[in-house]
Design a protein around this nucleic acid. Sequence first.
DNA 1: GCCTACATGTCGACA
DNA 2: TGTCGACGTGTAGGC
Lengths: 264, 264
Amino acid sequence: MKTHTYISPPLPVAELVLRDAFSRRKLVVMLCSCSVIYEGRSATILGEGERLVIVKPDGAVLVHRPRGYSPVNWQPDSQVLEARLDGDTLIVKSLRAKPRELLEIRVTRVDAIIVAEGMVDNAEFQELIDEAEIRDALVRHPELIEPGLRVVAKEKKLGDAGYADIYAVDGQGRHVIIEVKRVTAGREAVEQLRRYVDVFRRENPEAPVRGILVAPALTEPAQKLLEEYKLEYRKLDLRRVRKILEEERRASKQPSLLSFVKRS
Amino acid sequence: MKTHTYISPPLPVAELVLRDAFSRRKLVVMLCSCSVIYEGRSATILGEGERLVIVKPDGAVLVHRPRGYSPVNWQPDSQVLEARLDGDTLIVKSLRAKPRELLEIRVTRVDAIIVAEGMVDNAEFQELIDEAEIRDALVRHPELIEPGLRVVAKEKKLGDAGYADIYAVDGQGRHVIIEVKRVTAGREAVEQLRRYVDVFRRENPEAPVRGILVAPALTEPAQKLLEEYKLEYRKLDLRRVRKILEEERRASKQPSLLSFVKRS
DNA sequence: GCCTACATGTCGACA
DNA sequence: TGTCGACGTGTAGGC
């Protein structure tokens, strides 16, 4: 990575720096005073203030205020990027094609710019406990849900309704549709499960079927709704699932945290 | 805004710079090579690579890779921020209290740091076309949904089900529950409306009631589901709504774009 | 503090 | 390409 830094550059200098950076797909970080106009799926106006502006090599644009996680304005990617001096304002325009969205940053003062060229980042990103992993752990260990449960399929397609996380048969031979949530389940999760069970019932009118929502916790309205629909809930012990995943990872000689860091 | 810039500072220098910045709540922008470990609601490992790291005055932390809108790791805010040199690695730790989450950035090389002090940004942010505004426009102009419609309430509470966007009565005196979406409506939107209508029916068993989904477009599965539930759809002409909103804004002498920019 | 619904959500996966 | 569902979603607003 090669970086160039510009301290309080006059706007005409900043214009040239940005143009070069945009055309050569460099990363730009700019501290400046600006106002912003956005027009696309929504439309917003942001008055003058001091901001952090980021333009990435792929055309992603972020305008950050001094607080918080979220950018106040942004463009996930852009097809056209331009910098143009208009009197005493440096106008940065970002145009996105689909959906058609325009972001216009009107810069009145630049405090600092860093341009980075040739940033290299090919590292792997490992997500250790996402919903799919939890589901797969439950598929391998259905006893965590209920003794005697036998998994028939995961991601089972149910007509137009979508995909049930797990489809199983219980100790009494009844069909079981299982919806897994990684976080506290609300009304939406219950509705989702209801939809799957409904479709299964319609497709298999004779078959006895249960619906089980598996989650670390339930909101109170969700519990009421579950009862109303005669669906069931099993508490998911996340700590236990994590432990199992860790053990299996160790057993399969996946890189541990330490070895990963050392290697990279 | 006062900025300080450090080009390729040795790690011990970077450590001091970060410590000072964290303790005095300055904004930090750092281009560096690092690996990242996160542990909290989930757990992730990111190998070594060149990244843009941002630490905001409120403790928000963002780690950006060279592409895309989303940070690869982050902290929406943090209670504890520390920088500590450990051999030839500069460890930046961010601890969030609730939920308890730890972000650890292991920096092996710093290419550039900008520290900004006293960033001032008090500007107003105007959101011009969010869902609430569309809904209010429809409340004022229900004829955009259907002639003869008379609005009774907006954000009408419906038992445990939540809030219906608009509650109205039609030309024949039938009750109408209306759900407004500003983007293409999918299955979820239909389920939401169904829930509202269901609750209304239960609470008013005698009353004839219709459910209308108002959105600029419908996905095909959503349309099927609507028919199945005997609910209705009205296309929302966003352009027309925008026009109406603009005219009303002009009429009420809200600051226009131009006057806003000039004033601020 | 819990819960709900919105968001310019973004993003990946799959038909 | 359209559609769906997860996300460490974040965030605002009610109660």
